[in-house]
Design a protein around this nucleic acid. Sequence first.
RNA 1: GCGCCCAUAGCUCAACCGGAUAGAGCGUUGGGCUUCGAACCCAAAGGCUGGAGGUUCGAGUCCUCCUGGGCGCGCCA
Length: 555
Amino acid sequence: MIAKVIEELLNKLIEEAQEEGLLSKDAKPRFQVEPPKVAHHGDYATNLALASAKLSTRNPRELAQWFTQRLLVFKDLFSKVEVAGPGFINFFISPSYWQSLPASIMEMGDAYGRSDVGEGRRVQIEFVSANPTGPLHIGHGRGAAVGDTLARILLFAGFEVEKEYYINDVGRQMQILGRSVYLRALELQGQPVDFPDDHYKGDYIRQLAAELLKKDPTFVQRPENEAVSIARDFAKEAILAQIRKDLEDFGVSYDSWFSEKTLYEHSEVEKALSFLKDKGLIYEKDGALWFRASEFGDEKDRVVIRASGEPTYFASDIAYHYNKFFTRNFEKVIDVWGADHHGYIPRLKAAVKALGLDPNNLKVILIQMVNLLQGGEIKSMSTRAGEFVTLRELLDEVGRDATRFIFLTRRADSPLDFDVDLAKQQSQENPVYYVQYAHARLCSIFRKAKEARIFLPPIDKIDTSFLNTPEDYTLLKLLDYFPDIIEEVALKLEPHLLTFYLLDLATVFHNYYAKYRFLDQHEPTTWARLLLAHATRIVLAQGLWLLGVSAPEKM
RNA sequence: GCGCCCAUAGCUCAACCGGAUAGAGCGUUGGGCUUCGAACCCAAAGGCUGGAGGUUCGAGUCCUCCUGGGCGCGCCA
């Protein structure tokens, strides 16, 4: 948080420098305030003078000197400000700033880290959205973890967030699903069936067939297309119910479940297409209707209505995003997709542009493949073939906390090998326990303090100047950094940064714990450290909550 | 063939819109519980950031080419 304070100070000084003609008024220098890698470069450093060298009449070191002199007057904030190297400005934060931090964290409680960068803007985030043709597998789990955590963090950062699951309940794959169940039902009734290769072969299809037969024993005797319809609707609802339950147990809840079918029922597909048609962006060729995607950066034009008269999936998607931006008025839309859909992005962006929107308001987050490692070999997964590890299996055998954490310890766009054997057998060595253990340890300290009848006096009676070791400062600095991490994740949409932050915080805490006693012989020291412990616990608990991972008091 | 993503320690991964000496975990080696939880801590070893050029005060990060991997190029979803 101190980084933001410094940034604001610098921005004021930049204006001053511009007034004095030291800096050109043509452009605003882009600079960063960040913790340097080496301790003797101070607590924070900025490249301001280097970054604005081209806008200045002076060389970077002279410019840095000018800023430094004006910063030195803030004695309660900085113990030292110096020019270093080619023109960095290094800040040494005064101990009293750090020492005042735990009290304010205590006062703010779980509001600490909350931000208003979102300015209440309405954001929709859509994730998982797996076709309701089978159970969720491990890859969907990754999308769920990333999407849900992002939603939590965006909310925490001051956005108004709505989480949505898009149900593809229109089209051929639903028909195939219905037919798969129908055929299995026939089989169960003893009729010989030639089961096509492109139908869904998983065991769950047989189970669904059996359930349906139990509920409606005569449905198979109806004409085939009627029976298939019945099977389709039944299977869709049953599978969706299961998906909902799996996600719920994974700690993921949605604000809305949006059916593709309703786009047609409310003629939104027509509306969106006629909108484009009026702009002359739809034309006919080979009996089909095409959208001029190539005029908006896509490599070629795309079919929206087939020669058969059926709309394509793309047509639905245009209408869906028309609905998101116009009907429901979201300012910003985030789609979380599997990386195999990346070729689809230019097409959708083109559509968004054609609708007259700024394509930057649509962010697509690609979730890379999850490779399943079993016995050291990569297994391929396919819903049709019915071979996959389901999210349910992971929940049962690895657990929700560990699974979510593993998914979030990698950038979304880097492929992940999920070693199932390892996750199952050695789950005790999972890094999630490292963070949770830090939290449990803190809680244990509080229990011990209570047993020893040590009670904290009112906060203003605690002398935090006893928090003065290098380890105190390291820990305080990291706690101070928490709000910055939240904003960074919200801006860059990269939740793994929070995971790494928490691992860092746990490391620093464990280190501190090994070196110092919280319950010290000297009572004022104990009070100060207990206050620090409370602040640390608050941040750990809040961070874990944002990841959707529990913060146990004992383990 | 065209396009997108990736290549960092033995393994799995970080590195904050280009910043100072590239960091963790696992694994390996050695040390640390009569005191708040050892699911922990400390130390050591481990790197030409796939290769070759370029841009500049400064490159793992940006540009070009090459090599090697993943994915996508449907009137499928």
